[in-house]
Design a protein around this nucleic acid. Structure first.
Length: 424
RNA sequence: GGAGAGGUGGCCGAGUGGUUGAAGGCGGCGGCCUCGAAAGCCGUUGUACGGCUUGCCGUACCGGGGGUUCGAAUCCCCCCCUCUCCGCCA
């Protein structure tokens, strides 16, 4: 959430920022709602002050056994007016809040301005896409021939956008999760967390998923429970409504969870294979920092995620998302794009964002270093999306005979298996 | 799912509907004492919003939401959560 005070004082800067993002929110209308709310609150508070003074007087009269009846009668009217004003304040509050909740974060000044992904800025590339002297297969062909990915079974059990992993495929997925978690925990200083996979609506709102993106998520019938679209949601809310010790920052968490997304806005996109699923595994990295630390921590966050692809020996590139391509909560986002031979291009495998104080304000997460508590900064990043990493391994390590060599970094997690071959 | 108990400040814990933002204790901070520390003593100690003379003033907050009342931590209703026992279950 944007600070209302900031909106009042910097409305022009905010308008420009939102225009760059392609947002069509009417900030002048929001400002009016805010002004109206403040007027009503002020008026109500003055009435209440009058009421409180009179109540003290009534208490004094009664204590001295004097006649309090006229005073009480006089206050009846004030009391009714207060009640009426309360209702109006509630309405004004709700109207303002509804608007504030759908205003996205301000992009950082260093973010390239542009309408969409075409304006993203390439930061660096690592590794070289492999050359093959045979006809390249994509993960669908490879996985089906090897008997480790079963798309028909996925469809039978759950419909479109679900896949069943079997045998070495299931194990490979599990090996990737372990490699990622172990790396981040042992080498990068993150604390492992295994959160609930369902959360309350309040948690979704704190992380910025609600109210705006309700159609993108799955929820449980008749209950206020939502399937997590990313571990970012439970991790953000781990410290909701808390005041953290300055000395405890930065706090770094790594969590494996499945992620559930309806992909409502992407019909017809990536329908082949398991690139875009309703359920996928992800290891998420999350940080709570001071405002001063957050930009450095964003850099190390991306580097931490990159480490996994380096260990796997798979080529990738890092891009900075343009203002038009960024997520709702983010002030700056790096995407890591992995080389997929089956598509002959780089595809997103990680998204690392500094949300500055945007989520912290929504979820009310603060820290104290002096007298006044301040909002923390929050950062999140995939480290990495496991399903897409599995695709990358299959496609980059494929052999002419359709088998797949297991990258060395994964072998300890696969009982030393060096190659996945068709089950005979 | 059934029965019972309970949710008050950083923590513990009082609280007859009327100077209760809330006794007392612990913890924290400042000071006295001390060579230093402990103990002891004294003082202090929440958050948010708003106003102005920037230090004060006002308002709200005792799990959440409604209600009764001139006035609610205190009375009534609904909901949530925690604990104990039973049932069920991985």
């Amino acid at each position: 959430m944007i600070d209302v005070k900031f909106l009042r004082e910097n409305i022009e800067a905010l308008k420009t920022a939102l225009a760059n993002r392609g947002s069509d929110i009417d900030l002048d209308a929001v400002l009016q709602l805010d002004g109206r709310r403040r007027e009503l609150v002020h008026e109500t508070e003055q009435l209440r002050a009058e009421q409180n003074r009179a109540n003290e007087e009534i208490a004094r009269l009664k204590k001295n056994k004097e006649d309090a009846v006229p005073a009480i009668a006089a206050m009846k009217e004030v009391s009714a007016r207060v009640k009426e004003m309360d209702e109006r304040v509630r309405e004004a509050d709700a109207a303002l809040r509804d608007q504030m909740l759908i205003i996205p974060n301000m992009p950082d000044a260093r973010v390239p301005i542009g309408p969409d992904a075409s304006a993203n800025r390439l930061e660096r590339q690592w590794g070289t896409p492999p050359q093959f002297d045979f006809e390249v297969r994509d993960h669908v062909d490879l996985g089906t021939r090897l008997g480790i990915l079963d798309f028909e079974a996925g469809a039978k059990l759950s419909g479109a956008r679900f896949t069943v992993l079997k045998g070495a495929g299931a194990r490979l997925e599990r090996a990737l999760i372990s490699l990622m978690l172990d790396t981040h925990i042992s080498e990068h200083g993150y604390t492992e967390v295994l959160p609930p996979f369902m959360v309350l609506g309040a948690s979704m709102e704190g992380a910025g998923q609600l109210p705006k993106f309700a159609e993108e998520a799955f929820s449980l019938k008749g209950r206020d429970l939502w399937m997590v679209p990313t571990a970012e949601v439970p991790l953000t809310n781990l410290h909701r409504d808390e005041i953290l010790e300055a000395g405890s920052l930065p706090i770094r968490y790594a969590a494996y969870t499945p992620c559930f997304r309806s992909e409502a806005g992407s019909y017809g996109k990536d329908t082949r294979g398991m690139l875009r699923q309703h359920q996928f595994d992800k290891v998420e990295l999350y940080k709570f920092t001071t405002p001063e630390q957050s930009w450095d921590e964003l850099e190390s966050l991306v580097r931490n995620a990159e480490t996994i692809l380096q260990k796997l020996g798979i080529a990738y590139q890092v891009v900075t998302l343009s203002t038009g391509d960024m997520g709702f909560c983010s002030a700056k986002t790096y995407d890591i794009e992995v080389w997929l031979p089956g598509q002959n291009t780089y595809r997103e495998i990680s998204s690392c964002s500094n949300c500055t104080d945007f989520q912290a304000r929504r979820a009310n997460i603060r820290f104290r270093r002096d007298k006044k508590p301040e909002f923390v900064h929050t950062l999140n990043g995939s480290g990495l999306a496991v399903g897409r990493t599995l695709i990358a391994v299959l496609e980059n390590y494929q052999q002419a005979d359709g088998s797949v060599v297991v990258p060395e970094a994964l072998r300890p997690y696969m009982s030393g298996v060096e190659r996945i071959e068709p089950a005979s």
